[in-house]
Design a protein around this nucleic acid. Structure first.
Lengths: 232, 232
DNA sequence: GATCACAATATGTCCAGACAACAAATACAG
DNA sequence: CTGTATTTGTTGTCTGGACATATTGTGATC
């Protein structure tokens, strides 16, 4: 039910204020109890699609005209995963290595084994310069899955989830401003020393095993990480 | 009920796995229905304090030993507001000014009026150098509240909320890496051009009025913005 | 025409109970 | 002793109802 409503909302069916059906209407339409309706609406609300107000009703949240092309809105878990899944970076497989000390220290891990390494570049359609470069490490436990990975195929994250039969259950994320090394500066079309936004993510599965680490580097002048938070 | 449970959890009452009471036990203890218990637990779970698993039970989430002293964990709304409320920066009132073009453009506002301006520095106890500098703009609508503000007193945000009789209902947040200007470099003890993490927040009240904007600047090498996200 | 009281309507909170899905402990057969 | 069913206990989903609380429109009154 939430899925169907989400589609309708995204299609713009209830874009006019006052169009969105009330709980009792949805109860009748789907022939379910009010509890079920409210659970579905709660889900949509947590995704930021609708906003509800006692006494007044439910309205679809405007798309807030996020004009900034390089603005990456990540207001909730759904979006952050969507982003990780959808991102169409071109990547290549590198030699396995241990997690670099700098990163291991920051996330407080103590893995000694060699992880699989992938380097990726994300581009906007038609542009030559990448708008971000990414380095991803994959847990050596997933060796079988990594063997099946098609570097030219779908997204890295998606393939890991599929072949490795893991689903992400939590994510930690560290955001830091760093200075461009010569190497990154070249890739991103910057000068050495220019500010770069580094987003370091650790993906954990249901058993709290860290199965992937990804670090993406974005040029500071062209990129902002933006989020939207509802209170209560 | 959620408040009481939160206190107990933070006090460490249920730190051993298996200690946390089951739903039916809480029903009896508080003499409420299971619905009420589940709502309270849902709240605690959304704050990241507990984790629940079908068939198995509820366990208190470990404090994850975030050793990094300058690590600022902000995993949910509660924490971000707590941070804004608790932060003990020393600030001073400046001349009213319009929102700088750079910032107005980024957040897509078009206010022409002059907002109240405050400059603040946050320090760690005993240290001389600030670990962050903040600039805050307050909506001119709140002139009466601003008059009452005691610069030497409690936190700026808290006083605005109290005197202005506004409560925050949503927050937008932009994080970007920028290059230190001469001015900021001096304040933060950096060199000109060093990377700085800028966190730009807009606070909205129930009526969707933007009543405060704050921009804080953190040295890139000593600060990471870290968050933790649960899926479903 | 403006104002105020009231009713209709919407979501928020709560109850008591039922079954489903999953995990862990237990009993049992080999 | 081991491996497999079975039972028990826990959270997830759902029903159908009730009242609380906030908003909005209506209508009477001035």
């Amino acid at each position: 039910m939430a899925d169907q409503l989400r589609e309708e909302v995204l299609r713009g069916d209830y874009s006019d204020p006052g169009d969105f059906p009330t709980e009792s209407v949805l109860c009748k339409k789907y022939e379910v109890s009010r509890y079920t309706v409210r659970e579905a609406l709660r889900k949509l609300a947590s995704e930021g699609l609708i906003s509800r107000k006692r006494g007044s009703g439910t309205v679809v949240q405007p798309a807030t005209a996020r004009a900034g092309a390089l603005h990456q809105p990540l207001s909730n878990v759904g979006e952050i995963l969507q982003y990780a899944r959808d991102t169409t970076i071109s990547f290549e497989k590198m030699e396995p290595q241990t997690i670099p000390a700098k990163i291991a220290e920051q996330i407080g891990t103590r893995h000694k084994r060699k992880w699989f390494v992938f380097h990726g570049k994300r581009r906007k359609a038609g542009r030559k310069r990448p708008i971000a470069v990414t380095v991803a490490w994959v847990n050596p436990d997933l060796a079988d899955a990594v063997k099946q990975i098609d570097v030219g195929g779908a997204t890295l994250f998606g393939q890991i989830e599929e072949y490795g039969k893991v689903t992400v259950s939590r994510v930690t994320q560290d955001i830091q401003a760093i200075s461009a090394s010569k190497h990154f500066a070249k890739d991103l079309g910057l000068e050495k020393g220019d500010p770069i936004l580094r987003i370091l993510r650790c993906y954990f599965d249901e058993n709290d095993r860290m199965f992937e680490i990804s670090a993406s580097y974005h040029p500071g002048d062209r990129f902002a990480y933006s989020m939207h938070i509802e209170v209560d």
